[in-house]
Structure formats: structure tokens, C-alpha cells
Amino acid sequence: MAIKTPKLSWADVTPESVFVNRRQILAGMGALSLGGIAGRGVAQGDLEPNSYEDITSYNNFYEFGTGKEDPARYASAMTTDPWSIEIDGLVDAPGTYDFAELVTGMTMEERIYRFRCVEAWSMVIPWNGFELAQLLDKVGVQSGAKYVAFETLYRPEEMRGTRSPVIDWPYREGLRLDEAMHPLTIMATGLYGKPMPNQNGAPIRLVVPWKYGFKSIKSIVKISLVAEEPKTSWNMIAPNEYGFYSNVNPAVDHPRWSQATERMVGGGLFASRQDTLMFNGYEEDVAALYDGMDLQKSF
């Protein structure tokens, strides 16, 4: 099934100049570019994206070190071409897919999302990508599947941060199937109309805007459809601090810090905090996923 298709980046489809004048596009498109869905929770046009510089210089990607500037400094060592993704478990068409092959036929969109880190900082990021549901439909999810598990590349010779045992490598994340199929959940392959920078999780990463950033796993090499709740890295490290769900919730504090407020990255030395929103502002869209659940317990 490895038919090599020419590798097109999102930038090949849309001229960069179109992306540069962001606010004009937004004025024109309104919530349209989100297929209407996210527009209900957070008016996309109200969000002012962080600069490309902010987004690509302040990252958590522990495979390259625990410092915020480490990924920008060291992630260039990661080879992202060729790139393949193994899809296994309860799927009709398991196999190892070439990246280009996997994204062929997907409807690419721009999604301007809030991004809220569990460390109480946030950004607004204009992602390019497609709904994860499309990919799952492509490979055919079988009826027994209840969860989706993801793994990040683990290649020590290119990832200096993995010499430290801070995480039991490879990095793992997971979603419940209905979360994975939700239209807000995307696989991002770029930002600002450019191919995904290595430090942001090239060539393909998950983005789940209503959950803390660490759920949005980077540089994915494996996707498994499974019946049981998969192990996830931060939950393995400190289960009392990082739950499987990790939905953004200002009412549930991290044991070591408050989650009630956050600071927008890029505001400078004198910027103040802002209130954190339930489900990071996507409450209208996603709250129904958790009907009947005690979010204090299932944090």
C-alpha cells in the first residue's frame, strides 16, 4: 500500500501571502473555516494568533530537553522525511502508512485554536490539518474499539532529551474514541500555512483544543485502536497530577498550582493573567462528551 505520492505541503496549496494578512481572511470567513463547529464555542475571529516566532520558540517537547527553548534549539536533528505511521489494533486496514499517503484525500483546513498548557500558560495557534475522524474513517474503526492510543517517535540518536529518564519513552497519549472522532480534534501538519516545524511536532501531531497541551501528542509514529484505556505518559509519571482526561478545567487545580488563571505567552514582562475557561472555551462543543461524569474525579 506504499504508493508514494508527491509530498505536498499546505503551503503549496495556499499562497503564503494569503496567510500573512490573517485578520482580513478571518473577517471574510468568519466561523466558516471551522465548518461552523468551533465558532459556537469561541468565535474564531476573536482570537488573535500568537506570532510564528512565539509559537516556534517556546515549546515543551521533552524528547529534545526540558527547557522551553530546547526544542527550537535541538529538534532540527530529527529526520521527518521519510516518515511513516503504523496503524494497528482494531482497524480494518492496519499497516504502516507513508505520511504522504496517509494525508492524501484528507480535507485540509485552517483551525485557529486556543492552546492551554497544564503549566498555566496559553497561546493561540493557527493550525493546518484535518479532522482525526477522517483518518480513522479511512482505516476503518472496528466495533470493539473504545480508545485511540498514540506514540511519538523515539529515536535517541536524534533526540538528545531522551537520554534523561524523565519519561518512560516513547511518549504516549490516548483519547476515548468519541473524543477522537469529535470534529474539533485534528491531526495538524502545519501552522501559519507552513509545514509543521520540528519543534512543534513535525510532520504530524494531534491537536485537542479543550485538553491540556500535553494531550496533543507530537511527531506521531503509531496509532492504535484499542478496547481498554491506554497508558499515557504523564499519567504514568504522576497519576495524582495528570489524569487520563486532562480536560482544561479552572475548577480542578493541579496539586502544585492553580489552574484558575493562565498567562498568554507573548504579552511581555508586564502582561497580566487571564481567567482560564472551562474546556478551554470549547464547553458548548464538548461538554456533552462528559455528561454524567464527575470531572473532579475523572480529571
Binding site: 506570532s51 520558540s57 522551553k68 500558560w121 505567552v265 507573548g266 514582562l269
Partner: peptide, 16 residues
């Protein structure tokens, strides 16, 4: 402090 006020400490100067 000067670095933080003028962008030299990255996009999140308060934490830095």
C-alpha cells in the same frame, strides 16, 4: 530585567 522587558528572555519573560 532589561532583557525581560525588551524580549531577550523569550516570549514568556515573567516565568523566565
Amino acid at each position: 530585567f532589561y532583557q525581560g522587558a525588551t524580549g531577550g528572555l523569550g516570549p514568556e519573560p515573567i516565568k523566565a
